[in-house]
Design a protein around this nucleic acid. Structure first.
Length: 665
DNA sequence: CAATAAGGTATTTTT
DNA sequence: TACCTTATTG
């Protein structure tokens, strides 16, 4: 409890009714959550195994677990649940898989898998565009709308089509004995609603819930929380409506208001003291977000001093913008001996990073770029995981299709089409169908031979997986399929092949690590399930320590902070984005800008280009309307700044002496 | 089956 | 403009 301000203390010690903590940016929300966990355990209110802290990201979960365990002895922290919604959901489903109609070796389909399945199904229905249908279906699932309800309420042609596909999709993946990411929340809710004893079991086990980033919960997650916390409402929800930037993905910031309706006893605590930024940055952020309607008024303040004004950097074009930002970083490096890791370049869309990457490379500035394809989206990782998934769950047709001809086994599309037909007729999985005599009769002797070899091999592995160490199984898969050679043959450069194989061996390491961890991760199936939900951030911790400039989208920057932030591309059509200018969306765009501004601790530079080529055509663009919403007295326009000869000389002096010092090091 | 050409399409994406 | 996906062809 040391070092907590009065509001934080109130949040930590409040019990007896549900608590909503409105935690402004940089107000110490993680601190409140971890301290509250520790406090409850120390006071004997609940033991660690009765408390669950729920986050959205693995990263947040990791950080929270670390910080909570620092406050407690190992013994006290034993059994504490700190996990993402999805991991908690998985654990609940695992325990009750049978009742939900799944075998306990069920697979988890990632976003790409479900997209591929849906696309295939859409194709059969003679539908070309499956992408928006996927959105509709996912939104339904996030809203806990069943197939039946969706079918009834579908109005537009798109919705009616989506409802048909929704039904087919669910039937399909059920046949695969697979669930998708959305199901990891949907199924526990369904379980709780249909089986009171299951609900009671979990309510009894998890007596107190702490929810992080509460504004990002969707309707289904809200239902989940409400069921689990029960009428007791033993929960603390921590969130910030001003940082709700995922509405487009189904998040319901209005869940904050809903909490008050559902729990009249709700206690609300506001955290307004910011421990991150200087006053001018905060006042600017406050002014900007003040243009959004608010349920609860909030005014961030800090004692970190007034600080420097926010620099506004108008640029001729994007190239000019990148040059200026990079030269500013270099200048600060030499003049103030700043570390590269103190800088972040934030943008609205991923494509904006390209120019900056190029320039940073040219200037030998180390940088790290987050976003883009994650470890799990890499083809080589997906391949190996598909093999493992198939071994654990031979009904997983998605996995079967992915790897049946990777590496090439000379099993072509026509063979697979016939296999698909046959499996459909016999109502069985592809792998099962492949082994049936009836199928063998339909294809050539050569094809039969190839299929047989594959099935025989896989059977051996399935058998081995029963008893052998999972790590061994993975290694065997990789060597048996000759993945190394396949990589060498299919990659453009040997270097690329090497990099990919490195990823492959990381999977092995990781399986070993999860297996050694124990705790319900004994079987291959358990391990794979966890693997598809956990990220790989910790895999190269040395990379994390690197002194590198951070490049990321505004979405990716939430929760982070940097001494110096460059918010680039502050233009109409970009931020706010051209597709998000209606009454409602513009508010989320404003929150996005707010998130960007509040990442900065000391220095904030906002840049925009006056011309930008859009889709190949050069066009003049307008500065963002959000610039007009910032307090002019805290802004310093680069193009209007007058530098005196004395200042210039001073800068040069500092520059030279630091350069000498750097070279001397 | 692989290489090539043409075409279509460009926000954000915690799991 | 630059990318990725799809269709075609040998």
């Amino acid at each position: 409890m040391q070092g907590l301000n009065p509001e934080q203390q109130a949040a930590v010690t409040h019990l007896g009714s549900p608590l909503l903590v409105l935690a402004g940016a940089g107000s110490g929300k993680t601190r409140v959550i971890t301290q509250k966990i520790a406090w409850m355990i120390r006071k004997g209110v609940h033991s660690a195994d009765q408390i669950a802290a729920i986050t959205f990201t693995n990263k947040a979960a990791r950080e929270m677990r670390e910080r909570a365990s620092q406050l407690l002895t190992k013994e006290e922290a034993k059994g504490l649940t700190v996990s993402t919604f999805h991991t908690l959901g998985l654990n609940i489903i695992k325990r009750e898989a049978k009742r939900l109609g799944y075998k306990n070796n069920f697979s988890i389909l990632d976003a790409q898998d479900s997209a591929a399945i849906l696309k295939e199904l859409a194709h059969k229905e003679d539908v070309e565009e499956a992408e928006n249908l996927r959105w509709i279906i996912s939104r339904w699932k996030n809203d806990f709308i069943s197939v039946e309800q969706a079918t009834l309420q579908a109005n537009t042609t798109d919705e009616k089509l989506a409802a048909i596909l929704y039904e087919k999709y669910q039937r399909q993946i059920k046949a695969y004995n697979a669930v998708d990411f959305d199901d990891l929340i949907v199924l526990p809710v369904r379980l709780f609603e249909q089986h009171p004893d299951a609900l009671q079991f979990w309510q009894n086990k998890l007596r107190y819930l702490l929810i992080d980033e509460y504004q990002d919960t969707n309707a289904c997650q809200y239902r989940f929380i409400r069921l689990l916390s029960g009428i007791r409402g033993a929960l603390t929800a921590v969130g910030d409506d001003d940082q709700s930037i995922y509405a487009w993905r189904g998040a319901r910031p209005e869940n904050i208001a809903q909490l008050q309706k559902d729990y009249p006893m709700l206690k609300v605590v506001k955290l307004e003291q910011n421990y991150r930024s200087t006053a001018r940055i905060l006042q600017s952020a406050n002014k900007l977000i003040g243009n959004n309607p608010h349920l609860f008024e909030k005014n961030l303040w800090s004692t970190l001093g007034e600080g420097d004004p926010i620099r506004i950097m108008p640029c001729r074009n994007p190239e000019h913008e990148a040059e200026k930002v990079v030269s500013e970083i270099l200048k600060a490096r030499f003049r103030d001996r700043a570390a590269f890791k103190d800088f972040a370049i934030l943008y609205r869309g991923n494509h904006q990073s390209r120019l900056f990457e190029k320039l940073l490379r040219e200037n030998n500035i180390t940088y790290k770029i987050s976003g883009g394809t994650s470890f799990f989206e890499r083809a080589e990782v997906k391949d190996i995981l598909a093999y493992l998934r198939l071994i654990a769950n031979p009904d997983d047709d998605a996995a079967f299709l992915r790897i049946i001809n990777t590496p090439k086994r000379e099993i072509g599309t026509s063979t697979l089409e016939k296999l698909g037909e046959y499996a459909h007729e016999r109502h069985t999985s592809l792998f099962n169908a492949a082994q049936e005599l009836g199928f063998a009769q339909r294809i050539s002797a050569k094809a039969t031979q190839r299929i047989e070899t594959f099935c025989f091999w896989l059977h051996e592995l399935i058998r081995a997986a029963d008893s052998a160490d999972p790590t061994k199984i993975v290694q065997q898969v990789i060597t048996d399929i000759g993945y190394d050679d396949w990589m060498k043959n299919t990659c453009n450069t040997p270097k690329q092949a090497e990099a990919r194989m490195k990823n492959v061996w990381e999977i092995v390491d990781w399986v070993r690590k999860l297996h050694d961890d124990g705790a319900g991760k004994e079987t291959l199936s358990d391990i794979i399930a966890h693997m598809s939900l956990v990220d790989m951030l910790e895999r190269n911790s040395e990379e994390k320590e690197q002194d590198a400039v951070s490049l990321m989208t505004l979405h990716g920057a939430k929760g982070l902070e940097f001494p110096s932030v460059f918010l680039i591309g502050m233009e109409e059509e970009l931020l706010p984005h051209a597709n998000s200018v209606d009454e409602h969306s513009i508010q989320e765009e404003r929150r996005l800008a707010y998130v960007g501004i509040t990442r900065a601790q000391k220095n904030l530079t906002i840049s925009y280009a006056k011309t930008r080529s859009r889709y190949g055509e050069a066009s003049i663009v307008e500065p963002s309307r959000f610039l007009d919403e910032l307090p002019p007295e805290h802004l310093e326009w680069e193009d209007k700044k007058v530098i005196t000869p004395e200042q210039r000389q001073e800068t040069a002096r500092a520059y030279v002496s630091n350069l000498q010092a750097l070279l001397g090091d």
